[in-house]
Design a binder for these strands. Structure first.
Lengths: 202, 202
DNA sequence: AAAACTATCTTGACGCTGTCAAGTTTTCTC
DNA sequence: GAGAAAACTTGACAGCGTCAAGATAGTTTT
């Protein structure tokens, strides 16, 4: 519906998509309400019909980012159903891949959107769904004897935290070259995951 | 040397300090070259005599942040020398405390300063020193039989990553209330750390 | 079908920002 | 003490987020 009518038709989503594109192409520094409006072909104030302020647009872009992350995690786990051991490893790799390939979206997703706790219910919903997806796999791993039983929530948050931390440090180039020359990021992730496991994850 | 002379005397450090104060008091959104200049009592262009651009000021503030983190980690570990088991736990808690209490500095420290790899040698130096401090304690833990021997670098980066990730998720309010109602952040940190340990860390 | 209403979008303005150019003042160097 | 260099000010510019006022398009009411 991107005709040349006065009313765009689906400007809200067009703005979110424009934001995603700008993040991917030109990085976080180029993301402004005005650049997003330009890319969507509307005036600089048009976004205010759909977002109360810039923070709300960022929340919407972050929400879209979480949808993509969720989809990629699901796509990684789906074909390995009934094999949680492989699922948890595949999800870790998918998480890393997403962060590396959609760097700026990943960064914006974890850069303070949840300050105003309940202001963005869609964001809360999909971010919870994402952590639940991981927690469910962890739970399956426990049933399969791959992780010790009990304290599922603790295991899930610890594993997600570990995964998120290693990926974040890597994106920030905080992992020294003496380590990166020896190991792939993938190795580090697996090594860390294996601290939790009763059987060896590969 | 904050007299009313034309030349400030130590404007560079005054600007960094002003930036730290603004971050602590008014948050990351209030940090601008001009606000920092105002706080230091100089004109809006004065910072350009000491920093080529805003990114350089942010790098300097981040460097100061790492110095503080390093100091607090050292202060936590120092009194427990010869007891690496307690040191690693104390450092994890100190890391968490720093992140919680100096939230915005912590965030800015891990928000892309190292993009231009070698542009900020002071930053690289202190951030390396910080990870080395943790790695040394991990190494001592191995010698003491608290962690398995070998692959010290892997253990160090995995533990730092885990610590960093859990703290980051907590700051982002990404850890669900169903978990936080049951456990303290401290418990989560300890639980995660214990996955690596051969003896129980408390 | 006309009128009233509402959502959407444009235009124009405001103060704030980062940055640069030019000029002024101080300190350093010889 | 002269000349150079460093530190700082003033003034300007474009871009930013945001708001107010107005134009335009759908939608609802009668």
């Amino acid at each position: 519906m991107t005709t040349d009518t006065y009313h765009h038709g689906d400007l809200k989503n067009a703005l979110i998509q424009a934001g995603v594109d700008i993040l991917a192409r030109d990085g976080i520094g180029a993301l402004s309400l005005r650049s997003v409006a330009r890319k969507a072909g509307v005036s600089h104030s048009a976004p205010y019909a759909h977002f109360p302020d810039k923070q709300a647009l960022i929340a919407a872009i972050s929400t879209e980012g979480f949808h993509r992350l969720y989809t990629q995690l699901e796509a990684a786990a789906q074909p390995l159903a009934s094999n949680p051991q492989k699922q948890i490893v595949a999800c870790a790799r998918a998480y890393l891949n997403f962060a590396v390939q959609e760097r700026d979206i990943f960064n914006i997703m974890f850069s303070g959107v949840l300050e105003q706790e309940k202001a963005y219910p869609d964001f809360v919903e999909i971010s919870k769904a994402t952590s639940t997806l991981l927690a469910d796999i962890v739970s399956e791993c426990q049933k399969a004897g791959i992780f010790p039983n009990g304290q599922t929530d603790l295991f899930a948050v610890a594993i997600w935290g570990q995964l998120h931390g290693i990926v974040s440090l890597a994106l920030e180039k905080q992992i020294s070259h003496t380590v990166l020359d020896q190991y792939q990021l993938d190795d580090i992730l697996l090594f860390a995951l294996n601290q939790f496991a009763l059987v060896e994850l590969t």
